[in-house]
Design a protein around this nucleic acid. Structure first.
Length: 459
RNA sequence: GCGUCGGUGGUAGAGUGGUCUAUUACAACAGACUGUAAAUCUGUCGCCCCCUGGGCUCCGAUGGUUCGAAUCCAUCCCGACGCA
């Protein structure tokens, strides 16, 4: 089975960093120029932004989540829209029809199947999309639930947490993790719904089935994202299980064929695991890179799992060095400014991350000179603009205005902050792309980081 | 003028003899957040210090009762309501 509409073209390899490259991911619904940052729209919405704003800030694709959309509103409804891109209106701009199609007229007996196209209406063409498999929820609703453990921590934070998690004799304490909302076995994972507590079973096969209905151009194998606190022994067994699940995903993907909601062939990415252990990352990358089931291989690779901030470079590198170089690599859930330089330097093509939008809703704003908390009283009368970058569509709001919007809890606060932060990040990664094309990657890194972080990341 | 009720930390509002620097909420001030359980969560919030502890001050004002008062009594000041 060939996937003719999906392929990855390497436009230029960096002459400075041997693993870095600029490229283009061609998908059935458009091209993604890489390196690129993909905004996260978990529930088929990038929180607080509409698609007009997404386009305005230069978003090339949107990544949604299988677990969330399966629970609400359900894959059937999304398939009835022709996939989540159409449902959320993430489509190419077309003139609006003279009279908008009535949703009621299109309903059949089941109330679903002949629903006309969502978003801006008939004739529109969806734009590129990703879906995550639900593998991250194995961690966030499982080992991490109610513990305050994040998948990325500094090594200092990690050793502190490890101490809290073990008693004097070095044994693991049994604590709040009894509340876990996810239970793993060899066949799959049983989740409790975060909306109503009901039980839901995910397996590699069911994740593929749901993702075929969601209809993203790029989707991920169902993996087990582990905790950074997990032992090496556990990382090994989770990695090996992820590999067995990957093979099942490939088989099911082959069996399912093209997406039933878009009619297009989707690209399946495996997820490399192995925690912060270089030799495990290497093994995982090799196994998944060579994996072939029923004559098909993975179209690309995600780097998943947990590692410390300090280990990110080695972890990513030991994976990418061992992956087929002509296939795209996505660094799952990573996205603070410095991370893009690390990721791209070691061969990452795409990123997604909730951080820009989450911290935005909480009042944190990326600026050329570092991240600020716009809620701080010092911004109350600050008439300077959010950004010195005049190309930013949201640069010319004053800090005092955004401070006021947050203080008065206006909805627009999170919207402007999210749009601003996403533009900042999308632009940063796009600038990194240009720096590879022009062979001045390290110059950009030094310029950006010295302004943003001071001397923290400079050698 | 008489009567009744009431005056608590930035605000609202608990507490009505010792466990009270005083519940709670809001406001204020900071912090955290990396494949979204998150427009969420955490901390501080009378003053001072040798700050995992200690000292001082405090519930309209003053005086008193008591071993001990935000809490009881007296007087005064202020407010609301009722009656003249």
């Amino acid at each position: 089975m060939s996937n003719t509409k999906f392929n990855f073209e390497i436009v230029k390899r960096s002459e400075e960093a041997s693993l870095a490259r600029a490229g283009i991911i061609h998908t059935p619904h458009g091209d993604i120029l890489t390196p690129a940052f993909i905004p996260v729209g978990t529930k088929a919405t990038v929180k607080s932004l509409d698609v007009g704003m997404l386009k305005k800030i230069g978003s090339l694709a949107v990544l949604a989540n299988t677990y969330h959309l399966h629970l609400q509103p359900g894959a059937e409804l999304i398939a009835a829209h022709g996939g989540f891109a159409r449902m959320m209106g993430w489509v190419e701009d077309k003139p609006l029809p003279a009279s908008p199609p009535s949703l009621r007229e299109g309903l059949d007996a089941s109330g679903l199947s002949s629903l006309p196209l969502g978003g801006v209406g008939e004739g529109s063409v969806p734009l590129p999309t990703f879906t995550d498999s639900g593998g991250f929820q194995v961690f966030s609703l499982g080992a991490a639930f109610d513990t305050g453990v994040s998948k990325i921590a500094t090594s200092a934070e990690l050793s502190k947490k490890q101490k809290e998690e073990t008693d004097d004799k070095g044994n693991k304490k049994i604590k709040a993790t009894n509340n876990q909302m996810a239970k793993i076995d060899e066949e799959g994972v049983t989740f409790k719904s975060f909306t109503d507590g009901s039980s839901h079973r995910f397996t590699p096969e069911s994740s593929m089935q749901v993702q075929h209905k969601l209809g993203a151009d790029i989707f991920f194998a169902f993996d087990e994202c582990t905790s950074p606190l997990a032992s090496r022994e556990y990382q090994v067994s989770a990695m090996e299980r992820t590999h067995r699940w990957a093979a099942r995903c490939l088989g099911e993907h082959k069996r399912l064929g093209a997406s039933e909601s878009t009619g297009e062939q989707q690209a399946l990415f495996a997820v490399v695991q192995g925690g912060a252990y270089e030799e495990l990352r290497k093994e995982s990358a090799r196994v998944l890179g060579e994996m072939s089931v029923d004559g098909i291989e993975f179209d690309g690779f995600g780097i998943g799992g947990s590692f410390t901030k300090e280990d990110m470079d080695k972890t990513v590198r030991s994976a990418t060095e061992n992956l087929p170089e002509y296939k795209p690599r996505h660094l799952l859930g990573i996205g603070e400014p410095i991370d893009f330089f690390i990721g791209v330097e070691y061969g990452i093509d795409t990123f997604d991350c909730v951080s820009p939008t989450r911290v935005a809703r909480h009042g944190n704003i990326y600026t050329e000179n570092g991240r600020i908390n716009i809620l701080n009283s010092k911004y109350k009368k600050d008439l300077s603009y959010l950004s010195e970058d005049k190309s930013s569509p949201y640069h010319n709001y004053t800090k005092a205005y955004l401070h006021h919007l947050f203080k008065s809890e206006e909805m627009l606060a999170g919207t402007i902050a999210s749009a601003h932060n996403l533009y900042f990040i999308i632009k940063l990664v796009a600038d990194i792309r240009v720096s590879i094309l022009e062979d001045n990657f390290y110059k950009l890194k030094e310029e950006f980081c010295s302004k943003y972080y001071g001397d923290k990341y400079l050698k």
